[in-house]
Design a protein around this nucleic acid. Structure first.
Lengths: 230, 230
DNA sequence: ATATGGTAAGTAAGTGCATACTTACTTGTG
DNA sequence: CACAAGTAAGTATGCACTTACTTACCATAT
């Protein structure tokens, strides 16, 4: 951080370098994401954010009326990431073409990659969920749950096609999303406990999860297994 | 809540009914678990806890020197649950007997049930993890990671036996723990988004997850699938 | 049985500090 | 030189925690 300097009779005074409002706003957002993700919304003070940005606390409130609004801006920003939109279209295409492997690998990869890139944002969202913010629920619904429903729909379709075993499509979708989500999120929180597995490259992990899942959906032993149990 | 009543010249004064210290302490713990799980450690005030317990705030500090200490008492209490120890022994037995279905159903059921019963406690622990408490990490390590390692070991053994497909045992274990964990924990956080799935009884859910998993581990199409891809 | 005193369970009313947010002012730059 | 970007120094509120006090309960002596 470089500062403007002004020498007065009582000594040197440092002021933050002037920035265009838009830049400063973005800088504050970036810093807030990092801090919120490390310490939670309630655990982060506006003073800390200001300090990290190298400006006076009042500047925060010039750009965001309340701490709450700053928080909303973070959620909004991450909710409208265009990366997601692009991938979603590709996914739809793969689904239309009934390219099973591609569908599941894409879903897995998208989740892993999104969480990798937006690690901080995801942590913020986990916090939100825990802190009971409605906004986070909306974001979660659009990202994870929509994906989840889409997947369930696809599984149902492929079951009708006779390609997948006739399992409950919701359970199946949940299983898949679950294993990927766990790998992406929960594994990261507790990274120290099982770092060995986190070395897996996202692409490779997506392939492995797809392997396991497709195997369970397309083989014959599944129904036999079920029959045996009854 | 019943109160002792005292009539003075200025009216009726209500005081909390006297309780043995041990009982009051436990009551405060129970209430704190609930509140912490709903609103997080930082999001819950000692005043709220006192209000919910029907006593003066100062009582909290009679039993716990600091809010932090109250929190630690919660973590400790849940870490030494004996339910876990019992189930762990049964699991070891099933593993020795190579009863695959039983092993996985037990693991799934144990996780689901533990989280169901200790829903609040688990949320507290998630918070802890996010808030960066070392204690929670220890608890998590003993409960989830130990289970995870045990499972990976079992999968490795069964692979050597030639019963399971030769997959990376860590990935396989992670997949299974992942889908169950997701169902148990993450699904609950975002309960409103997919309540339909949460109606599944734990026992039934454990069976379904085991179905899916064992199918993927024991069928022949897995390797074929893998070969096709290359 | 009954009075009594020590003790533990309870209370009201603070204290001090941290924090979100404000106000009134200053200064660098197009 | 206007005005947006910056600052210092607040205010008000809410929080963890304290203090000084009161009262129910129960064991024991009478």
């Amino acid at each position: 951080m470089t500062f403007n300097k002004k020498t007065t009779e009582i000594g040197e005074i440092r002021t933050a370098p002037r920035m265009a409002a838009e830049d400063r706003r973005q800088q504050i957002l970036d810093i807030a994401v990092r801090l919120f993700s490390q310490k939670g919304f309630r655990g982060t003070t506006t003073k800390e954010i200001a300090l990290a940005a190298g400006v006076n606390e009042a500047i925060i409130f010039r750009h965001f009326a309340t701490k709450e609004e700053l928080y909303r801006a973070i959620i909004d920003q991450n909710a409208s990431s265009e990366q997601i939109m692009t991938l979603e279209k590709e996914l739809d295409k793969a689904m239309e073409e009934s390219d099973d492997r591609r569908v599941f690998e894409m879903v897995a990869y998208q989740m892993l990659d999104f969480h990798g890139v937006n690690d901080s944002a995801m942590r913020v969202m986990m916090y939100s969920a825990l802190e009971g913010h409605e906004l986070a629920e909306i974001v979660f619904r659009t990202h994870i749950t929509e994906m989840f429903k889409k997947l369930a729909g696809y599984i149902k379709k492929r079951t009708k096609d006779g390609v997948f075993q006739s399992v409950d499509e919701m359970t199946a979708a949940r299983s898949f999303v679950g294993m990927v989500f766990y790998h992406a999120i929960v594994g990261k929180f507790y990274g120290k406990c099982s770092r060995d597995l986190l070395d897996l490259d996202n692409r490779e992990a997506a392939v492995r999860f797809t392997d396991i899942f497709l195997a369970s959906m397309t083989n014959l032993s599944f129904n036999l297994n079920k029959a045996k149990r009854k």
